[in-house]
Design a protein around this nucleic acid. Sequence first.
DNA 1: CGTGTGATTGACGCCTGTCAACGTCTGTGG
DNA 2: CCACAGACGTTGACAGGCGTCAATCACACG
Lengths: 235, 235
Amino acid sequence: MDMKQLDKIPACYDCVNESNNLFRHLTQDDLSLLSYEKGCNFYKKGNVVYHEGSRVNGFYCVNAGIVKLYKTGYEGREQIIRFAKKGDIIGFRSVLSGDFACHTARVIEDATLCFIPSETLFDLIRRNSEFSIELHKLTCRELGEANSFITDIAQKTVRERLAEALLILYNTFGLDHENFLQINLTREELSNIVGTATESAIRLLSEFKDEKLIEIHGRRLKFLDMKGIKKVANV
Amino acid sequence: MDMKQLDKIPACYDCVNESNNLFRHLTQDDLSLLSYEKGCNFYKKGNVVYHEGSRVNGFYCVNAGIVKLYKTGYEGREQIIRFAKKGDIIGFRSVLSGDFACHTARVIEDATLCFIPSETLFDLIRRNSEFSIELHKLTCRELGEANSFITDIAQKTVRERLAEALLILYNTFGLDHENFLQINLTREELSNIVGTATESAIRLLSEFKDEKLIEIHGRRLKFLDMKGIKKVANV
DNA sequence: CGTGTGATTGACGCCTGTCAACGTCTGTGG
DNA sequence: CCACAGACGTTGACAGGCGTCAATCACACG
């Protein structure tokens, strides 16, 4: 494992400034507690943070890089549940429910992750009911998104779902100054979001290209026609 | 709307004794508060408790009957998310996240529902951190189940999913003394759990019958071969 | 007895998964 | 510097699962 302890532990203030970060509801005291208790590690691309089915004894906050969370189906195929980027937290569901991890967390862009032990999380929840409620809100939002995803995947065609996946990636990672999506996935990863075969994803991407919705430069996708994509996605 | 206020409000103790009920973590004081603040109504089969997209200002605890929770897809097709029976609570996700309801709740077997206002819920959460954590655990379990469902629906065939749906119904509602499933759904509702066309659900049920997995007596389904069903479901 | 809802069955065809072959690119080791 | 392996991307052929449409049946209800 290419994981290594960092000498310099990034300050929590760093992440708190990210939009929508959970920890902005902590008091100075709580933040100090958090900074004191947490550890921080560097993970290279490809590393697994935790495996589905394993016991986790804390949760992680992404300080830099990108992590994908996926479940493994009974024939080994990945189903990507969501991505986590700077300011996002992962693994808290398992900590709270006391279950085994229900997905695997794998780094897809070199990452630094802060680790906060379970006890610290429960401490914070007990000390600070506003924080507790905010964390709960976060869980509820995820649940709402999961339910929407269930409906989409059950009712929409692969074509619609792929377009929608592009929109989700756009909302999460945004575009650069040239309208390139700020995350580069393999075709297989794309198909594992949509829940389809790699070949189908490839064919549909080509269709989108022919229809001038996107440009394809290897793994880099350039958005040409946002309205068109939304129309295909039926949102 | 055939809803009417009940003269006799059922005691919370009644539900608390249900297995896994959330409120068993409340103190006597908290339970008294709950009983004092809550209301209770009777709903006939077919009534809607709340609509997707509406604002809810409290949540419901099912005292009797069955409620189905579903989202409506863009072409009007229902996707059933889950069912709620005695002791289950519904609508708390929207209360906590402060969002609009992300699904519709419709009664499918005459029901009595207790209504607890948002403020009471937040009061309880602030007063009792153990209760708060238990509620959070519940949310997390739902989230875990939703993620599993996403993987299944994305990767399994309709045949496998239908078998799995039967198992979920079995786990939720159980069998009577003759091995009949303790809930009777229309074929359309069954297909709306699985995420398929009604006709497909019908054909597959016939197959299951031919394979001696189940017997079909109208809407009443008799389980003959649990192992066989599990095998089909690939669990 | 007409009406309406739900269940069933058949015909048909398309979407999409699977298999296979081949191209492309990158990194590694000789 | 070249050969090679391995991962990833692309394209074509093909079959079959599953959705859609339509007709018919069963049953309840006013």
